[in-house]
Amino acid sequence: MRGFTWRAKQRHRPGLEVMALGPEAGPHSPAPAPDHLERWLAVRGSVPWPKAADVGASDPVIPSRDGAAEDIRAFDGALSPGRAAGMLRALDSVRADAARGAPLDFELLRGWQRHVLETPEPPPFRGSPAFAKGGRERYGITPDTRARLDDCLAESGGADGVSLTARAARACLDICFFHPFDDGNARSAFLALVFVLAREGVALESVGLLRRVSFRADDPQGPLTLARFIDSHLKET
């Protein structure tokens, strides 16, 4: 579809101008809003993701308390008891799927998100551009956006040799910046992080740093910072 610009036309009454829609874009047309999903994918490909250690990288970690569940009861429960109950049901599904070694993809996310959003059916992939951070970030959409998300999430299995904590951070940020759902994407991203760890027998006593921070799609330091936060919680556990 061709661009349009407003052109002034003089009417019969002096001093009165009516703006008409013309077919050509003018020199002062605003530039298209940047696509922060594409910016994230560029950053994602350039980040020096930490590689897995030679030993001990996949040892089970069993905490003395359930940090994820405790945080949901405190953080989500303070916002709404119903929200916390939905998140706890989703957390149960996350751990059941991790125990059976399910691959991480959008279909798996949808199953959890049904509990998160308390919808009768698993919610669909968004059908239009999404916005976050008060509109400062815009995430575009194309016919292959969902397939690209699945390709990214498939890397959480570790075939590329990236360390577990970095894979958990990367999957979390993939969901943040693909923004697949109309609502609840931060909760979905957190659950995916828990899932990536749980699939390898790892759980955390505390997750405080992981739900109280926000990252920019175009910040190359953000992914490494989140990976360090996960590693810090893991060492504490």
Rank of each mutant, 00 (worst) to 15 (best):
R2W: 07
R2C: 08
R2D: 06
R7A: 14
R7W: 10
R7V: 15
Q10L: 07
R11H: 09
R13G: 00
R13A: 01
P14W: 06
P14M: 03
E17I: 12
M19P: 00
A20Y: 15
L21M: 14
G22D: 09
A33T: 11
E38M: 12
L41V: 06
L41P: 05
S46H: 06
S46R: 13
S46G: 13
P48E: 00
W49N: 13
P50E: 14
P50V: 12
A53S: 04
V55G: 10
G56E: 04
A57R: 06
S58P: 00
V61T: 14
V61W: 06
I62M: 09
G67I: 03
G67S: 02
E70S: 10
D76Y: 13
P81I: 02
R83L: 14
L88G: 10
L91V: 08
D92T: 14
V94E: 07
R95P: 02
R100A: 11
R100M: 12
R100D: 06
G111W: 00
W112Q: 01
Q113C: 09
H115I: 04
L117P: 03
L117T: 00
E121G: 01
P122E: 10
P124E: 04
R126P: 09
S128P: 03
K133Q: 15
G134Y: 06
G135E: 09
T142A: 15
T145H: 08
A147L: 12
D151R: 13
C152E: 15
D160V: 01
T165M: 05
A171D: 02
D174I: 13
C176W: 11
F177V: 11
H179F: 06
F181H: 05
D182W: 00
D182Y: 01
G184K: 02
G184C: 02
N185Y: 09
A186W: 11
S188W: 07
S188Q: 04
L191E: 00
A192D: 07
F195K: 01
A198H: 11
G201R: 08
S206F: 02
S206V: 07
L210T: 05
S214H: 14
F215N: 12
A217L: 07
D218K: 11
D219M: 15
T225D: 13
L226Q: 06
R228W: 10
F229S: 12
S232G: 14
H233Q: 12
E236N: 04
